Simulated assay, not measured.
Amino acid sequence: MSELTLQQLAETYQDYFSVEHGISLNVRPLDRPLPSTDELAAAIPAPFLMASDVNSLNSSALRSLNRLGELAEELANYLQQQARKVDLLLHYVLRQQDDESTRYITQSYSGSGCCYLADSALSPLQVVEVKLFLDNNDGAVFCYGQVLSCEQVAEKWQIKVVFSCIREEDRELIVRASLHQQSKLLKQKAEQRQQHTSS
Score class of each variant (00 low, 15 high):
Ile23Arg: 04
Ile23Tyr: 01
Ile23Trp: 03
Ser24Phe: 07
Ser24Met: 12
Ser24Ile: 15
Leu25Thr: 13
Asn26Pro: 07
Val27Glu: 01
Val27Ala: 03
Arg28Tyr: 07
Arg28Gly: 01
Arg28Lys: 11
Pro29Asn: 01
Pro29Thr: 06
Pro29Ser: 05
Leu30Ala: 07
Leu30Tyr: 04
Asp31Ile: 05
Asp31Gly: 04
Arg32Glu: 15
Pro33Glu: 13
Pro33Asp: 11
Pro33Phe: 00
Pro33Val: 12
Pro33Asn: 05
Leu34Lys: 06
Leu34Met: 13
Pro35His: 00
Pro35Met: 00
Pro35Arg: 01
Ser36Val: 10
Ser36His: 09
Ser36Gly: 09
Ser36Phe: 02
Thr37His: 03
Thr37Ile: 11
Thr37Phe: 05
Thr37Gln: 11
Glu39Arg: 09
Leu40His: 09
Ala41Arg: 15
Ala42Phe: 02
Ala42Arg: 15
Ala43Met: 09
Ala43Tyr: 06
Ala43Glu: 09
Ile44Ala: 02
Ile44Tyr: 02
Ile44Cys: 01
Ile44Val: 15
Ala46Glu: 15
Ala46Leu: 10
Ala46Cys: 04
Ala46Arg: 12
Pro47Ile: 04
Pro47Lys: 00
Pro47Leu: 04
Pro47Ala: 02
Phe48Tyr: 10
Phe48Thr: 10
Phe48His: 05
Phe48Val: 10
Leu49Gly: 08
Met50Ala: 05
Ala51Pro: 10
Ala51His: 04
Ser52His: 13
Ser52Pro: 10
Ser52Thr: 14
Ser52Arg: 14
Asp53Ala: 10
Asp53Ser: 12
Asp53Gly: 01
Val54Met: 04
Val54Pro: 01
Val54Ser: 00
Asn55Leu: 10
Asn55Met: 10
Asn55Arg: 14
Ser56Thr: 11
Ser56Ala: 08
Ser56Gly: 03
Ser56Arg: 14
Leu57Tyr: 07
Leu57Arg: 08
Leu57Met: 10
Leu57Asp: 07
Asn58Gly: 00
Asn58Ile: 15
Asn58Asp: 14
Asn58Val: 14
Ser59Arg: 13
Ser59Gly: 03
Ser59Trp: 02
Ser59Asn: 10
Ser60Gly: 00
Ser60Met: 12
Ser60Phe: 01
Ser60Arg: 12
Ser60Ala: 07
Ser60Val: 12
Ser60His: 09
Ser60Ile: 06
Ala61Arg: 06
Ala61Ile: 14
Arg63Gly: 01
Ser64Asn: 09
Ser64Glu: 14
Ser64Pro: 02
Leu65His: 01
Leu65Phe: 03
Asn66Arg: 09
Asn66His: 08
Asn66Glu: 15
Asn66Thr: 13
Leu68Pro: 12
Leu68Asn: 07
Gly69Ser: 08
Gly69Asp: 08
Gly69Asn: 07
Glu70Met: 02
